[in-house]
Design a protein around this nucleic acid. Sequence first.
DNA 1: CCAATAAGTGTTTTT
DNA 2: CACTTATTGG
Length: 726
Amino acid sequence: MREDPLSIEYRGLLNPAQLEAVLHRETPLLVLAGAGSGKTRVITYKIAYLIHECGYRPEEIFAVTFTNKASNEMRERVNVLLEDSVDVWVRTFHSSAAKLLREWGKSLGVDPGFSIIDQQDQRSGLKKIVRSMNIDTETYRPEKYMYLINRAKDLLMNADEAASASFSSDLYFNDVYAQYQALLDRENLFDFSDLLFKLTRALERHGEVLERIRRRFRYILVDEFQDTNHAQYVLIRQLVGGGGSICVVGDDDQSIYGFRGARIENIHNFVKEYENCRVIKLEENYRSFQNILTASSQVINNNEERFGKTLYTKKGEGEKLIFCRTGTDYEESRFISKTILELGLIHGYRYSDCAIFYRMNAQSRAFESVFNQHRIPYTIVGGLRFFEREEIKDILAYIRLAMNPMDEIALRRIANRPPRGIGQRTVDAMVKACMDRGYSILHGDDDLPIAPSRKKLVLAFTELIADIGERITTQDPPSLLQHVYTTSGYLEWLRREQKEEKVKNLEELYNAVYEFHRSSPESSIVDFVEEVSLNQGARDDEFQDNRVHLITLHNAKGLEFPVVFMAGMEEGVFPHYLSGEALQDQQEERRLCYVGMTRAMERLYLTAAKSRLLWGRTVERDVSNFIREIPKDLLVEKEFGMSAANRASQRSGGSQAGLPSGSGLKKRRIVERDNSNITVNSRVVHESFGRGTVRSLQDDIAEIEFDDGFVMQFMLKYTPIQIENS
DNA sequence: CCAATAAGTGTTTTT
DNA sequence: CACTTATTGG
């Protein structure tokens, strides 16, 4: 080990295993980083070390992650350590591929002017193809082909190769894949899988370009390596070449993206694939109390084929885990809501200390409605994303179409939005005519074989798009956007239809573009579109306020919260009934459970409802097997809301708990109150929850049963409550 | 040929 | 329940 002084005091800031991971650089390195063991710390310090101590220039370092959130966080932390050495390449796999293709496309034989389509566009394209083949779209669902085609691309197989390898036994798969790819190629569109597929293919063919890229990136770091798919694995292999300048970090127990092609074998076989590989395990956990670690370890121990590691912490045992069975999903929300309020009143937790994890996005609705009633502020992380909204995608489609007049998918999206008399028939005719004759889709000549009554309308539309196209280079992004809003008639249409929410979103889009323009004045709207088509991103304000976080288990990876609720711990919901019987799938669900549990720092609650209103039906559910895998002595079991009284209150809609609307109640202010006149059995009125009776009183903590059956504890000196005056 | 309305249907996780 | 597709009236 080096003995010369280091310019950053690494030794004091890292534990021995972390330090070793930072300093090792002669041969390939695999860091097995358990949950909460400081892996981001290792990566960022390693980057700093390479630059400060080993003579690497920032732009020679290539660091990839999976999510935009992770890459933003990493870039920020690197910038703090390096005092704004922003040239380090910190990007997601997909944005890395897109950037390399744009930069090197010309020498790689790839047209760098491609547009990127998201899965919605991908689906609509496939739907069109399947329908045109006149086959039964119920047995042969477009979604199925979407899945298969993406998996084939992840495995670096084009349509021909997939066909000769008998990739799928589906009768029409080969045909659908070929047609779909023809559609994309014709219009120079790339789906997400294409980015990596085409890049690795092109690098294979052009060894001389690969060689130049290798010389540029002298050290490669990969985060969350357990989630790499085959294409990503191959890309990394290509970039590293024969050298040892690679460090991958991951945790096989946290591999949760098998459904989109991730191969856990990549991390398991890394040692075999990279010669002289060094393996370092990070097993000290800095996040959770021991009870949480023990419980989650016990759960994940039921999986096979793991590296296996033993997480430990120097923190104490901490609280036991709490498992609560409720009658219905609605009561589950009420229990969690009540618990959050109590944690705040009794232990001083803030809303933003609490997070609720669930398996399916649809589960958030119950929480939203109960939280609204109880005036608990919340935020849905990664729910309906801003840039996935209809109106946003429509506006961006105008710009996309102007950029790339071959983009049929964008054309179909907006040809008649707002309604301008160009229906499906007319669009079909336009597309077909142009395809046959090799025109651009925007060709507005008189000889197009469309109904005479439509010609004028079509001409007006093509002129509209052409006009936008000219302004892309001449106008700055914000005013161009404004121009699109008005000349397309889109904004006026929304106003006429009274879609206030959507109008607001367009304003927000304008703000985003304005901000984009301000921060990089030389960039065009094209760059903006590029950014948002990859950054299917969240808004910045997601984490700012004091709000409870509602979040899917998949989105929770990489986060941590003092208090975690895992909701819907029921067979069929989690593990999800569609996740498959195969051992592989069951194990992935279990890893997802492990990921969720290990996010908790101090308190972990698990809840399950007996019956759940899902898909318009009430379904009875058993408790998830994962609960049984938690040692009994670490678990406090409770029940909530299965009494007749609560059933009744539920039917009445729960409006009793609603606040009187209006004055001054938006923010709960912490004011001390004198409630010493309240004793056991007092009849009381609570500002939010209405009338009730005090059931017990101990050390200023009162348990109150409200008339609707809702039972809750309060710290009286902070509670807005009075004796009922009769 | 388009737009509004009525019936019908299939429900995970995401770059 | 929310979203897609068939039908009918303009």
